[in-house]
Simulated scan of single mutants.
Amino acid sequence: MPAISRDEVAHLARLARIDLSDDELNHLAPQLDVILQSVAQVSEVAAQDIPPTSHPLPLTNVFRQDEIRPCLSAEEALAGAPIVDGAQAVEDERFRVPRILGEEA
């Protein structure tokens, strides 16, 4: 005899607002019983001394710690600007690049 009856499946279907035919109820009751038995087996295997985990292997942080390091000053970075028309392509402490849009800024 299944642990979940046909009437219980019908009740669950009504609660979920699912319209099931008699054939569907007869078909689903044994399937739901198998699912419940499988969950019960898993519950038996889960031991109290094993902590619940989200991953089978331990996770480690792959990001390095933030450390302040020396970096280029604005002048040093702009020193690498290309030479255009005999002058370095720098304007207002920024790299000067050709305009790609036809509209005025």
Rank of each mutant, 00 (worst) to 15 (best):
V39L: 14
P58S: 08
L20E: 06
E67D: 05
Q48H: 10
P56R: 05
I68G: 03
V9D: 02
A16Q: 15
E67N: 02
I100F: 07
N26S: 14
Q31V: 10
A105D: 13
H11P: 00
R94N: 09
D22G: 05
V62T: 10
H55E: 11
V39S: 03
R6Q: 15
V34C: 01
A3W: 10
L78V: 02
F95P: 01
D7I: 12
G80K: 03
D23Q: 12
E103P: 00
L25F: 03
A3I: 12
P2R: 06
V84H: 07
E8F: 02
G102N: 11
E67L: 04
I50W: 11
Q88A: 09
T60Y: 06
G86D: 15
A79R: 15
L20V: 07
D49G: 01
L28A: 09
R99L: 08
P98H: 03
D19R: 10
S5I: 02
R14V: 10
A89D: 00
D66G: 03
M1D: 13
E44G: 08
D49A: 07
S21E: 13
I83S: 10
F95R: 09
F63I: 02
D85F: 11
P98K: 10
R14H: 11
L28S: 05
P70L: 02
V9P: 02
I83W: 03
Q31I: 06
D22E: 15
E8Y: 01
P30I: 05
